[in-house]
Every structure is written in C-alpha cells, then in structure tokens.
Design a protein around this nucleic acid. Structure first.
Lengths: 128, 128
DNA sequence: CGGAATCCGTAAGGATACTG
DNA sequence: CAGTATCCTTACGGATTCCG
C-alpha cells in the first residue's frame, strides 16, 4: 500500500475495520460538522435533522471511545454537553477530505456506471 | 471541506453514503488486492480466506456496478473469471491509501483510547 | 437538555447445498 | 470453477418512553 512497502493483508483488514467503523451511517457527518466548529448535542441533532437521538448518542459515544472527539459536560440547569474534535480527530480530517474530493469529483461517473449496469443487467436482481 | 470552499452539508451526506458503500466489510480489501494484481475469483477467495462465497460475489457485483472493477468471463471448462480495477477504480487507490496510512499511523492511539475509555467507563455497557 | 432503556422491523452476512 | 438459491441468526437503526 505504501510505495516501497510490500502489501500486508493484515493492514488491509485493519483499514477495512476502521473504514467500517467511520463508514457507518453518521460518523463522517459528525466529524465533518465538528471539524468546522464545536457543537452541543442539540446543535448536532438539528444539523443532522434525520438522525434519531439514539443513533446520535451511539455515534458520539463510539467516536469518543476511539479518541476522536471529546465530551464536556456542563452541569448547568438544564445541563449542556459540548463536543469537539481531539487532535487525533482533527488529524482524520485530511484523509476524509481526500475521500470527499474523490467522491465529489467522481460521483457522476459512479451514477452513470450504475445506470449502465442496471440497464444491461438481465432479468431481475433482488439485491445489490 | 475544501480550503476555500464553504461547507455543504449535502456533500457530507454524499461522502457518508459512498463511505458506507466502500466501507462495508470487504470492498476495501478487494480493491486493495486488485490494486496489486488482477485476480480470479478463487484467488480473491483464498486471499480473504474468511469471506464467504456469497459475500465475495455480492462485493464484486457492487463494485462492478459502481464502475470500479471489470469482470471478464472466459468460457473455458471449467470456467474462469477475471477481475481487474477500472481506471475509476484505480483512481480510488490514492484516497484509500491515504486513509490506510492514517489508520496504520494512528491505530495504536485508537486502541489506547479505547482501553482508557473502557477502563474508566462506569458499569457495564452492552453496546458500542 | 441530554441522554438511557425498551421494543421492534429490516437488512447484513454466514453456512450449506446445488448448478452450468 | 464460479457462481446461485435458500435458510437462519445477528446487528443496525428508528420510534417511543422515561429520567436527572
């Protein structure tokens, strides 16, 4: 994978595992939001209007557990909780942005490929 | 996300969608394998020894549908099928490698963060 | 406000058996 | 060899309710 490094299948698996983690339904969205500015729980919920409270909580906990975001509780009344990227979380923004650029730059090709595939595909396919 | 670009929530969603696609359990693994050399179905299966035949087929079909890999059938006996990255698929190697480097470079921090979190976390948590 | 707990439907994914 | 078809179990994720 690195120029000059030989390919190590194990590394592929680690990469795939982490991709599966941050590639879940909401993690990237949250990291990108927090990359712009720190947010409270309710701000995140408004920004991602379709996320359920439960999934936002789960997403934030997992990101916190992986050391990507930091959670600060202000025991005011009513309470307020503050989320921010850690240095580790900020270091992820570069790679995420690279992927973001690639997607934006190639999404038309992907959509076109799908339409071609679906048009030429024989019969019905129930999955994919 | 781009320096000089303002943040567009919609782009985040597109990125998240594609990440969810290629962030599934096997896509990255397959793309990285094919990035090194074209492979037959059985070669891929041996390289990813724990993947089921069913999931390998599904993964390959989806990657083909998205225009990332090309499938070539040789109607010999027994038949042989050949998989290779398309130019679009090859263009994804850069971003994937960036992410790969990030994971390899930071996996110790991630593991450490998890252990810290799990150690300090009060009581039992059934999920995450 | 910021969750945690519960319930529930759907989809992901493995194992196995069969086929051209 | 390279799949397809089927079954079955688990995980994901939404909706709702309750709590400090």
């Amino acid at each position: 994978m690195l120029p000059g490094r030989t390919h190590v299948p194990h590394d592929c698996r680690v990469v795939a595992d982490v991709l599966t983690r941050i590639g879940d339904k909401w993690s990237v969205f949250v990291v990108m939001l927090l990359g712009e500015k720190d947010c409270r729980f309710s701000e995140l919920q408004r920004a991602a209007s379709s996320i359920s409270k439960r999934m936002l909580t789960l997403t934030l906990r997992r990101l916190e557990r992986d050391g990507l975001i930091e959670r600060t509780v202000f025991s005011t009344l009513p309470p307020s909780v503050h989320y921010a990227l850690t240095p580790l979380g900020r270091s992820l923004r570069g790679p995420i942005d690279m992927l973001g650029h690639w997607v934006v730059d190639h999404q038309k090709e992907i959509v076109a490929a799908r339409e071609r595939f679906d048009a030429h595909s024989p019969g019905r396919r129930h999955d994919l």
